[in-house]
Design a protein around this nucleic acid. Structure first.
Lengths: 152, 152
DNA sequence: GCTGAAATAATAGCGTT
DNA sequence: AACGCTATTATTTCAGC
């Protein structure tokens, strides 16, 4: 973090939890002027500290009650196999996240579906991709903590 | 989704990707008045479809280059063991997410740290908690996809 | 539930220290 | 960098349909 100070960090802390705060509200908390906060927020976006501002939905209300993690092992690790798997898998709407991993398997996918039937549909699509050796599925029983905000 | 229509879904779609859109911009896309959009967004928040609006930071810029998944197996599954583990683990600032799972282990944690040294510090704190049998750690090599927006 | 319009509030730009 | 001031835009409210 080369070019941001404590005030910037405090702004990031606040906006990570609630990006609907107005510059006026932030300026009151930080004992700065509205214009100063405005300029800092503009800079934090421009420099890429803030990538974007998004609405977080209640997944149960929009029919994504089932979250699964899928561990994928590929047949080989050639550049082609890896990149064509990535290219295909990110196009599945069920795939919220995809990480290439170190260790005993190659990718972790986080899958959001309505229910087990919908997961099964996804699973069959996934297993059809070329060069997959195994897919292991783990299902979320309960969400103890789910945070998009990094402590700063 | 009992009480929302196609227009609401379109608003949710838009705001999931960019919550900085103004009501005017949304109203232009949907061919509705600004006041109509305003009222719908208000309702979507009030009814809990939109849980919150947050800034998403670039984790590499704020020194969280290492993401790990930790699989935790507990000694037993008594209500006490489970809930006291949950209560302790969510207090670690490194733990972004914690899910109780079905299957061969009990919890998946998503951990964000600066580097492997910082992960090691976390690992030793975690392993100190009572009733833990094993912790398996998997490290992210690369992030292929990371989305907070559900396709609607 | 939508519209248009009016009132209130926030953001964006600028000149100064 | 921060400030206050001003202009521009956006949000919020409301009467009427």
């Amino acid at each position: 973090m080369p070019d941001i100070d404590q005030t910037d960090l405090e702004i990031l802390r606040l906006l990570q939890h609630n990006a609907e705060l107005t510059n006026k509200e932030i300026s009151a908390k930080l004992h700065k002027s509205v214009a100063a906060v405005h300029e800092r927020v503009r800079r934090l976006k421009e420099q890429g500290y803030i990538k974007r501002v998004v609405a977080i939905l209640d997944r149960k209300k929009i029919d994504r009650s089932l979250i699964a993690f899928s561990h994928v092992l590929l047949k080989d690790h050639s550049a082609n196999t890896l990149s064509s798997f990535e290219k295909e898998v990110i196009r599945f709407p069920e795939v919220m996240e995809c990480f290439q991993m170190t260790g005993t398997f190659d990718f972790i996918l986080r899958i959001a579906t309505a229910d087990m039937d919908a997961y099964h549909v996804f699973y069959r699509k996934l297993a059809t991709l070329p060069n997959i050796t195994t897919v292991q599925s783990f299902f979320v029983l309960s969400e103890t903590k789910s945070d998009t905000a990094y402590p700063l």
